[in-house]
């Protein structure tokens, strides 16, 4: 494991913090938006229209803002860790392209479905694009993230397959892709409980959440299995670090509480619990990976400490992020307050 140099610049830590928080918020918020599309596959015939309206209303005002956490991550990477950005985008060109196509298809089809002036037959096509791109995109997001771990990326590789395909077409990234899809579906179901009126619909989303959580746990098992196949001693690393182990244990103990809460259909409590679980899992992941960003096949891993930009750049990036947060967070809070606090649209002003 690479050394952590004593006293890296303070701004480096600010930048790392923002990168981590952006990833977390992207998973929680945009993840739930993608998950809503996944859930539409399993919507069944009954109440279909009503369920879709709930999804439309829940995503409409916020999905573009939620999507911004991804842009923020990209900007932090190319300004703060340019070598990471350039290596990842060189060797993972194919899965990244697949993900981009999904991002384009999802955003457009969702908006077209809502804003097409004629609600006719074309709605079916928008919905098809919307639901399948909602599965497709998180899958490739997971694959790209997973490919950073087993050390398949190797600048010395010769040949197309070795250089551009095998780094991601292997057990661990593929399993992480599948897990990401399940996780996002779970987050969406939990999120939509609180968005639906009490009664049959709410019950339905609570049931979906319970099912999705079990599937996600199974997919999590798959990830561990795939990790062993891929030579990543994930289980040992999780257990080897006190903090990571504590996170995993806490996330596990939340499970029964969450199920109980789902039984009661308590929207906000379920959100908090599910959010904490994902935070704990990502936290554990962060701890065992730290400070490696990309494990490289040639042994020269890219870390937070050897791949960062010069001091002057980090300072500017840190300032922009801090000022940005001061401007964005109140605005985001206002957005959520306007759309999420009142169940029924307020008629009048504030």
């Amino acid at each position: 494991m690479p050394e952590i140099p004593a006293g890296g610049s303070a701004m480096l830590w600010v930048v790392i913090l923002f990168l981590g928080v952006s990833l977390l918020l992207y998973c929680l918020l945009a993840g739930a938006d993608f998950g809503a599309g996944i859930l539409e596959i399993f919507m069944g015939r009954e109440n279909r229209r009503a369920q879709r309206d709930i999804i439309d209303r829940a995503l409409g005002p916020v999905w573009e803002a939620n999507h911004m956490w991804l842009i923020l991550m990209v900007v932090i990477l190319f300004m703060g860790f340019p070598l990471v950005y350039s290596s990842v985008s060189t060797y993972l060109h194919l899965p990244l392209t697949a993900m981009l196509i999904g991002i384009i298809a999802r955003g457009c089809s969702f908006t077209f479905r809502h804003y097409d002036a004629v609600k006719g037959r074309s709605q079916r096509s928008y919905t098809l694009f919307f639901i399948y791109s909602s599965v497709w995109t998180p899958f490739w997001l997971g694959v790209v993230t997973g490919a950073l771990v087993p050390g398949g990326i190797d600048p010395a590789a010769r040949g197309y397959l070795e250089g551009y395909v095998w780094p991601w077409l292997r057990p661990f990234p593929l399993a992480l892709g599948a897990f990401t899809v399940c996780l996002f579906a779970f987050l969406a179901a939990v999120y939509l409980i609180g968005e639906s009126p009490p009664g049959a619909l709410r019950r339905r989303f609570a049931r979906r959440a319970a099912i999705a959580s079990s599937v996600a746990v199974a997919a999590g098992g798959l990830v561990f299995w795939a990790a062993e196949r891929d030579g990543v001693d994930l289980a040992a690393r999780f257990m080897g670090s006190g903090a990571a182990a504590a996170c995993v244990v806490a996330a596990t103990f939340i499970m029964p509480v969450l199920w109980a809460v789902l039984g009661q259909q308590w929207g906000w409590a379920a959100r908090m619990l599910a959010g904490s679980q994902v935070t704990l899992i990502l936290g554990a992941w962060f701890v065992v990976q730290f400070p490696i960003l990309v494990k490289m096949g040639n042994g020269r891993d890219l870390t937070f400490f050897n791949a960062h930009a010069p001091e002057a750049t980090l300072d500017q990036l840190g300032i922009a992020l801090i000022v940005g947060a001061v401007l964005i967070l109140p605005a985001l809070f206002f957005l959520l307050r306007v759309f999420k606090s009142s169940e029924s649209p307020a008629s009048g002003g504030h």
Binding site: L72, V75, M79, T313, A320
Partner: peptide, 8 residues
Amino acid sequence: GMPFSWEG
């Protein structure tokens, strides 16, 4: 990167 970070 600076203008891009403000652009973000």
